[in-house]
Design a protein around this nucleic acid. Structure first.
Lengths: 331, 331
DNA sequence: CTGAAAGCGCTTACAG
DNA sequence: CTGAAAGCGCTTACAG
């Protein structure tokens, strides 16, 4: 079964061990003829290199790590799927680590000591946690960030234009006819959440909106969104549209509306951000910003695996406004 | 940093390599004195064995795999967390594999060929997929199943009493005063879903319910539940209570009710199963069966890591009926 | 109860 | 462009 060794391949191809190794690792200085012979032997024998042996002999671990501290299983699951696909393609293993943003120092120290990785993919809010970044840099550990907002040149990153997407949502709601808004904000240490807030507010101002949106914290969770929704509806001057800066909190807002006897979208428009799984687990389905989370995660892992994380720079992927049924013109 | 090797420990303790190895692997025939000396040296040096080297030299891979083909990210995420915790504690790595139930043969073949694992944790519906079990048995691969319903002695397993839990839910709704029921069933190849169905129906019969519940398939998904809910509400003789056999489909049913202008629970009672994340991402919060998914997964992984998967037998964990706000006495 | 030798399957210098 | 030797950090027989 998992029988064939590099030795077998070398013999079958009539070359040395080192040559097989060269072909496998795509090193330079290999003649086409030799390469072809080796590749044929590999295919015939169904040879797969032993990761343990490669790792022991060489400097690479064939393991990449995914760090997260995200309240949303939906988001996390998508990130994981994307990173996983990239790992499988590159014959690497994936290691998952849940980090508590408040205890980065001790947890990451332990983690680094306990078996090395070839690098890490960081998800928000860890992405912009300077304590973590300093730690990683100090140890010379490579990493790629998903949705970075600060220090874009510090490492490679993959993101969408969060501010631009939130602005697009503002424009969409404005064009629908809304003039009074509320905004459910995310965790304070989550800088993508911050960018969404800013993008939304600034676009509204640009559009000539008389009053800035009423802001209430929602912590990116359903419960937080629910409480935020209740607070918003308790105001004397209610908005006609509420923007949750992620889908979970928007879903919470919808629940608060239904608790208050308001129909969405007839009596209140609600919009989310992410297009995560929950956007289609509420009724009506949520109008939201589609963020290609899995693709972003895949791209991030691919950058890491490509091993040229020398300089930074953020790769931007496209977002998309997804019009569904939770937002409509005001009554 | 990750400097200390077994050699260093041996020298520091004044013993041979083999003795250090014995202590680490908890082998027999080690004097207390020697063990203590070695353990002290390990602690002082902060020594952690290199998994790659252990794996290369020995028969173990220090890697356990998690196979799933589950439509619900919530369920999957919890399983993963539980298995992960057990892995970390035992210094193993976790590998995640998404399997398509329809293509078990080819996918698993590829997977097994591509780097060995010390064993696998199987989640439903893979748990009761005989093609998969046969394949694994034929290759002598160890595995532990979560929520097995068939062949309980074929491998170790961890489960709750799905039928009993569904019966408890039937009793609860009955005691609330409901007399006409609908049941949203799960995927046909998901035998735990089948057990829930049977438990619910039989308990109702036992209780003296005049007519068996109206059954509609919901596929364990929100969308499936939504469609099922619509179908149920379209009937001339509507039930007063609907039991979704998982939370996702129950959430879909709730959405269908709200679309039809029915208030939950005033006009219709709805109950779920799992107490997954979505149970508290709908409003009103879902009355459901709490299944200790993470604990089950943890227990399953621990069984696997204990390496005595010789004989089968199912470990049963406790479920709990969680009364929240989606079910009430009929109007 | 304890240890010295060989080897797991690769990669890393080092030659040619 | 290609190869022979040494060694990564452990475990596995095998002795005593």
């Amino acid at each position: 079964m998992s029988g064939a060794t590099m030795h077998d391949v070398a013999r079958a191809a009539g070359v040395s061990l080192k040559s097989v190794s060269r072909v496998i690792n795509r090193e330079a200085h290999v003649s086409d003829d030799l390469r072809r012979r080796v590749e044929a032997a590999i295919a015939t024998l169904g040879y797969v290199p032993d990761p343990a042996a490669r790792s022991l002999a060489g400097a690479r671990a064939f393991l990449i790590g995914l760090m997260f501290d995200n309240p949303s299983p939906n988001y996390t699951m998508k990130v994981q799927t994307g990173v996983y696909r990239a790992c499988v393609a590159a014959q690497h293993h994936l290691r998952i680590d849940t980090i508590d943003s408040d205890q980065v120092a001790t947890q990451v120290d332990h983690l680094l000591r306990n078996g090395r990785c070839d690098g890490f993919v960081l998800t928000p809010p860890l992405t912009d946690n300077r304590v973590l970044l300093d730690l990683l840099d100090a140890r010379g550990v490579r990493y790629v960030r998903i949705a970075p907002q600060i220090d874009p040149d510090r490492s490679p990153g993959v993101a969408i234009d969060d501010a631009g997407a939130a602005a697009a949502m503002a424009r969409y709601l404005w064009d629908l006819g809304h003039r009074r808004f509320a905004l459910v904000t995310g965790p304070v240490d989550h800088s993508a959440a911050h960018a969404r807030r800013t993008g939304f507010i600034e676009e509204l101002a640009q559009l000539g909106c008389a009053e800035p949106p009423h802001e209430v914290p929602g912590g990116f969770s359903f419960e937080g969104g629910f409480a935020a929704g209740q607070a918003i509806l308790a105001q004397s001057a209610r908005p006609t549209a509420i923007f949750g800066t992620n889908d979970d909190s928007a879903a919470g807002v919808m629940a608060a509306c239904s608790q208050a006897g308001l129909r969405v979208p007839a009596d209140m428009s609600v919009a989310g951000f992410d297009d995560s799984w929950i956007a289609r687990s509420v009724w009506p389905y949520l109008t939201t910003i589609h963020q290609p989370i899995e693709a972003m995660a895949h791209a991030a892992a691919t950058l890491l695996l490509a091993r040229d994380t020398g300089r930074g720079g953020v790769t931007r992927l496209d977002y998309k406004l997804v019009v569904r049924d939770s937002a409509a013109p005001p009554a």
